[in-house]
């Protein structure tokens, strides 16, 4: 059993949820999203974010607009769509239920 692999598997499931949550606070471009995610130790590298954002956008959960940048090419600012907001709400309640359930079953483990 590879512990690193297991951790990655766990992170994978909640990654999209967190991206949507970050964007619920306001529009952002990938580098800003990454800063927030890194703080939460959810993501290590930026490269991971691009395919995820593209997929969420293609699923209609996100939209984007271009904004000029002073340091480099124009930036893509992502924004939650109404579908995305609804989706986030559902994920949130599922997550809360899950956290409750997991906490109840794992409270015997001493850390």
């Amino acid at each position: 059993m590879n512990i690193e692999n297991n951790k990655a598997q766990m992170r994978k499931g909640v990654l999209e949820f967190c991206i949507l949550a970050v964007l619920a606070d306001g529009d952002a471009y990938p580098s800003e999203i990454i800063v927030r995610m890194k703080d939460a130790k959810l993501l290590v590298v930026e490269g991971t974010l691009y395919p995820l954002l593209t997929r969420l956008k293609n699923d209609g959960l996100l939209s984007y607009r271009w904004e000029e940048s002073t340091s480099g090419p124009p930036r893509k600012y992502y924004k939650l769509t109404p579908v995305g907001e609804q989706f986030l709400k559902e994920l949130k309640s599922t997550w809360d239920d899950l956290v409750d359930a997991v906490n109840k079953t794992t409270k015997n483990i001493k850390s």
Binding site: A8, R11, K12, L15, V44, G47, P51
Partner: peptide, 16 residues
């Protein structure tokens, strides 16, 4: 590459 990460890592972190 340190910022963007190695594609090896992408594999672990996204669903692709």
């Amino acid at each position: 590459i340190a910022i963007m990460g190695n594609p090896e890592v992408f594999k672990n972190e996204d669903g692709f």
